[in-house]
């Protein structure tokens, strides 16, 4: 060990600096990913609708995200007269901050996480359940009917889908015997949980769509009925933060799906030429696949009605996930496969 390593790994200050460096190493690629996800979404939607998508700024429209960012920065942030100023400003910061915070525990490769904590999956669940506050506060602080309606819809929707999401997570935890995300991925060495727990995988992904307020569950925004829902009063950078937060949440849900069901950083083909490829590559590749499905769904399905969303969450997903949870527990118990941590 040279002196720099000793400083970074043993002294208090060194550990703080190391953690900041690790966070930057995660957040910078994440933000670039978010920027280019906006472009990818417009390109894929363009292809689905037989258009070209953005193709003017730079080669293949590659500078479009930067052009958008500069445009957003140059615009004026307008705070409505009747708004609650402090909360109005807090809401987008909260949304975006939480979307980034959750990444602290995601393992991008074996033991490559900023914090490899015991209760990693609970941490992600807790952070994503806080995400609803950004939306409620925005809707209330705007002091506008449309924003308020959007916030109310979103609150009910996110709370409902968290229930079945919780049962899915419990099922996975039961199969692993640990709440640590690293252990959850390593438990999938032989078979990805997407295969034995296939219905739960589908429920988790669809609940993820609802949790991020994405189409076909985007009635918190509902452009055709309530203009833009909870962020109708937002402009410029405060709007951009909501926008980026939504995309960061999409990537987060994709990463969580990958960790819980698609074997995380593990190679899909566990033999020699594929296992040479570093785990980070596979992890990012699987996230891309999930994100493509997110965009594909948006380009294909029309928006659900409010009561249909509630019926799907409470009358379809909740019973299925509950029954599957009990069945999994029974199966593991009967065949003596329960992991004893």
């Amino acid at each position: 060990m040279n002196s720099l390593e000793t400083f970074l790994f043993t002294t208090d200050l060194g550990i703080v600096i190391l953690t900041i460096l690790k966070s930057l190493a995660l957040i910078v690629p994440l933000l670039i990913g978010v920027a280019y996800l906006t472009l990818a979404e417009r390109k894929v939607l363009g292809a689905i609708q037989l258009r070209k998508g953005p193709n003017v700024v730079g080669p293949f429209g590659l500078w479009q995200p930067f052009a958008d960012a500069i445009k957003m920065l140059m615009k004026e942030t307008i705070i409505p007269a009747g708004a609650n100023r402090a909360l109005f400003v807090l809401a987008p910061l909260l949304t975006f901050g939480l979307a980034v915070t959750a990444w602290a525990v995601i393992p991008v490769s074996n033991h490559w996480a900023i914090a490899n904590i015991n209760v990693g999956i609970l941490y992600i669940f807790a952070i994503s359940s806080l995400g609803v506050y950004g939306i409620i506060i925005a809707g209330w602080a705007s002091n506008s009917k449309y924003a308020f309606l959007g916030a109310m819809r979103s609150a009910a929707q996110m709370v409902s889908y968290e229930v079945s999401m919780g049962f899915v997570i419990v099922t996975v935890i039961m199969c692993v015997g640990s709440q640590n995300l690293n252990d959850i991925v390593l438990a999938q060495r032989h078979i990805w949980f997407a295969i034995p727990l296939f219905p739960m995988f589908i429920i988790f992904f669809i609940s993820g769509l609802a949790e991020t307020n994405r189409a076909p569950f985007d009635l918190a925004e509902g452009d055709t009925e309530i203009v833009a829902g909870f962020f109708v009063e937002y402009s410029a950078m405060s709007f951009a933060l909501f926008f980026l937060g939504e995309y960061a949440n999409m990537i987060l849900i994709s990463a969580t799906t990958t960790v819980l069901f698609l074997g995380g950083w593990l190679s899909p083909l566990p033999f020699i030429p594929f296992t040479w490829i570093p785990g980070v590559f596979w992890f990012v590749f699987k996230i891309f696949v999930c994100l493509f499905v997110f965009i594909w769904v948006r380009g294909t399905l029309p928006r659900y009605r409010y009561d249909q969303i509630m019926a799907l969450g409470w009358k379809v997903f909740l019973p299925i996930s509950l029954v599957w949870l009990v069945m999994t527990a029974g199966f593991l118990e009967i065949f003596g496969m329960l992991p004893h941590a």
Partner: peptide, 23 residues
């Protein structure tokens, strides 16, 4: 465990409903 369950249950669900009602 208790810490995160407190956040999930009380902040993520109960307080959301409080907020809902109060608004």
């Amino acid at each position: 465990f208790l810490a995160l369950v407190l956040v999930i249950v009380y902040v993520g669900a109960v307080a959301v409903l409080f907020m809902f009602v109060v608004m």
